[in-house]
Each structure stands twice: as C-alpha cells, then as structure tokens.
C-alpha cells in the first residue's frame, strides 16, 4: 500500500452490495489530507458507489449493504456512535446532476447553515457571501441573490451546488464527475475552482476523463469492476503504471 503521511479518510475492506450485486469489493485506501484524489475508471466501475459510501449516502437506498470501515480522522463513520448527519456535514457530496432546490439563490446556499442551527440573518448573509465567493460565483450573482436558482445556466448551477456544500464548512468534499454535461468553458472554470479548493479541503473526485484527472489531482485511484486496481501519486501512476489494466486505460485502449 502506498504510504500516505496524513490520511484524512482511511478506507478498510469496504464492500458495497446492491441486493445480490456487489458494486465494491473489499477496497482499502488512504485518502490524503489537503490534496485532491481522483477516482477513475469506466462507467459501472463503482466510482459513485465509493463516493457515496464515504459520506453514508448509500444507505438511503433500501437494499444496500455496506461492509468494512471508513475512518474519518480515525473515527469509524459506520461505527455505533457515529452521527449520520454530522458525518454528512463534515463530508460534503456534490452529485453528478447539479440539482439546486427550487428556491432563491440565497435560500439554496443558506439551506445547510439553517439546518445546523444558524438563525441570525447577518451571519447567514456572511456565510452565503463567503461560500459564493469561494465557489467563484459571487461576481455573477451578487446583485440578484433573491432570483430563482433554477434559472441559472448549467455551469452556474454546478457552482451553486458547490457553494451550497461549502456553506456547511465541510472538511472533505466529494465531487462526482465535476464537468458532467458542461461546455468546455464552464468545465474549465470548475477545474480552476477545484485547484483552488484543494488548498483548503480534502477533495475526492470521480471522473471519466484522464486529462481532467491529470490536470487537477495529486493522487489517483483506479477502479475496475468494483476492485481497486492501483493507487498512487498521479505522476507515478501516469509515468509507471504497475498494472496492465491501468496502463490500458491510461493509454486510451478502453476509452
């Protein structure tokens, strides 16, 4: 196993089943703190399942079974004393389809802080402003915070969802396919945003695109059919893939 000095998340023997179907098979992985880790693999490889099981979103489905451990700062998030909502606050998930609530832009960002007990209007204003700035959306929407969020462009919606996740001050951000369905300009903006965010947060990205993974990530985990094939620093994996399957994927034989 690759040595990671300060793991933020430690995954031990994680298996996820949907009914009889095994989506993840005994994954063990150390996700480094303050860096971007890209999870790559074809569709159906288990990327989204892995991301969802890192913040206990998987169990919203009825027939899902999760085995193994995920340690967040050394505490098992599946342990008996773990608080689901607290786990989900500390580990933010940004879904592939950006889906803002059908409310105003302000209300969207303020939704999370309100859940966790922020009532003071001035404090909320502050949080909303900060989160939108962090998500690089502030300049575009600052005059029209009360507008309906569903009228934003797809790229803006994606960033709004990031801002919404940032507003609860998570420690880890899981981003499922950041540039999904976006035009190149918006996608580039999101990538810039990710480069900025990884200074402050631990990021985990699921992506199909090797190029994107190469540009933004520090570590790469390669999944294939639910198995972890390879994990290591991005430059190493690109330069000297240890596994034949990784090499094939990187050189584009599968894509």
């Amino acid at each position: 196993m690759v040595l990671v000095r300060h793991p933020k998340l430690v995954v031990r023997n994680l298996s996820v089943y949907y009914g009889d179907f095994q989506a993840l098979s005994s994954i063990s992985l150390n996700i480094p703190s303050g860096a971007a880790t890209a999870v790559i693999g074809g569709s159906g490889a288990g990327k989204s399942s892995l991301l969802r099981s890192l913040c206990r979103m998987n169990e919203l489905w009825d027939n899902v079974r999760t085995e193994g451990q995920v340690l967040l700062d050394g505490h098992d998030i599946y342990g008996p004393d773990a608080d689901v909502t607290e786990v989900r606050r500390r580990v933010g998930l940004i879904a592939r389809h950006p889906s803002p609530f059908p409310k105003s832009i302000f209300e969207n960002v303020a939704y999370g802080p309100r859940l966790h007990g922020v009532r003071d209007r001035r404090e909320l204003d502050e949080i909303v402003k900060r989160s939108l700035k962090q998500a690089g959306l502030w300049n575009e929407v600052k005059g029209r915070l009360q507008e309906f969020a569903l009228n934003l462009s797809p790229g803006q919606k994606a960033r709004l969802c990031i801002a919404r996740a940032l507003a609860v001050q998570p420690e880890v951000l899981l981003i499922d396919d950041p540039a999904y369905n976006l035009d190149p300009v918006s996608a580039a903006k999101i990538e810039d945003l990710i480069l900025e965010l990884k200074q402050e947060y631990t990021l985990v990205l699921a992506t199909n695109s090797m190029q994107q993974a190469g540009r933004v990530s520090d570590y790469i985990a390669f999944l294939s059919e639910g198995f972890l094939v390879e994990f290591g620093p991005t430059s190493d994996v690109f330069a000297r893939p240890k596994d034949k399957r990784t090499e094939d994927y990187i050189t584009g034989r599968f894509s």
């Binding site: 949907y18 009914g19 179907f21 919203l60 489905w61 009825d62 027939n63 899902v64 389809h97």
Partner: peptide, 9 residues
C-alpha cells in the same frame, strides 16, 4: 431513477 437496483425511499 438514477439507479434501478434500489428504490429511493
């Protein structure tokens, strides 16, 4: 639905 193996809620 996003995934058909399970039902949401």
């Amino acid at each position: 639905h996003e995934r058909e193996r399970g039902r949401w809620y």
